[in-house]
Nucleic acid binder design. Structure first.
Lengths: 164, 164
DNA sequence: TATTGTTATACTCTATAACTATA
DNA sequence: TATAGTTATAGAGTATAACAATA
């Protein structure tokens, strides 16, 4: 079977969807050794910036259904990465905090993210990467995407065996 | 609850995953009025370039499981967009072709894709879009992504109610 | 015996909504 | 009565693998 000759000009939108899915998938793979999924990492990251959030607030921030968030927070708590503290003012809610282990894990995730970025953008030099990031940033803003919130969190499950 | 101040510098990889998921989701929405999903569109597009492919070959090209491809081709055939012709040389296989309706639909998909591209890149001018496309193209090539094959096809189902 | 296309089964995941405790 | 968190149920979707026909 003959291969398509080289690569034809593709639209930016298709390339974005294609590379985006690839990037998300690879990042998830890199996270697997830690037993974490991208949503886990997202929660840890938000919690570093806004400690003490309730699950309700966290669900709104990350646009996750509360029922789904419960399971993820349960896992994070079981692993000792996040702690639920009781709220004296409203005993219905929990205030969520990173534990020390959680912070250490988050640092490790940061290293993984850096490696991931490096691998993904290996074909671009520093200037080009900044150029790319700036263009993407403008698209993200104009499209109304919230910083740090991945629309695909809803579907980025726990285990996605690397096809074949 | 206080909003995060403005948008902090995000990594290119996160932006790619974020915008990529957004782009894929929006494109799927635009396709919905036609009753088609991105995988449907992908098959039609491949078939235009390589008419007469067998399902097996198509499955390999698009990296879809044969069992899944059957269902999608069934739908396309039912809608009269694709026809299965018997292969005299090997009666186990079908040769797949676009029908006239299929070609017309593909043209419509092309218009939709153009609108989509326009909407997604509204914040960039022509030069910037080309710049972006070039950078993305280089990443795609270096990452070994096949032209026209979306890794997320496997997961881009039929109906994904536009969450509010 | 190997391969194409197909069908059937099982499994995973997500959302809906019912439930408990507190406000 | 309304809301936070939780749990249970049901629904959708995918992959695994068994099956029939042909090579």
């Amino acid at each position: 079977m003959k291969k398509h000759e080289a690569r034809r000009a593709a639209s930016a939108s298709f390339l974005l969807a294609q590379i985006g899915a690839h990037a998300a998938s690879r990042f998830a793979e890199r996270l697997q050794p830690l037993g974490l999924s991208p949503p886990h990492a997202g929660i840890l990251r938000v919690l570093r910036g806004s400690a003490g959030l309730s699950q309700q607030e966290l669900a709104v921030t990350l646009k996750l259904h509360p029922s789904r968030l419960v399971a993820i927070v349960d896992e994070l708590e079981t692993r000792g990465l996040v702690s639920r503290r009781e709220n004296p003012n409203d005993r219905r809610t929990y205030a969520l905090f990173l534990t020390e282990t959680g912070e250490a894990t988050l640092a490790e995730i940061g290293r993984i993210a850096t490696e991931h970025e490096e691998a993904l953008c290996a074909s671009l030099n520093k200037t080009e990467r900044e150029q790319l990031a700036q263009l993407l940033q403008r698209i993200a803003e104009e499209q109304g995407l919230t910083a740090g919130v991945h629309p695909g969190f809803s579907r980025m499950g726990k285990k996605s065996p690397p096809a074949e």
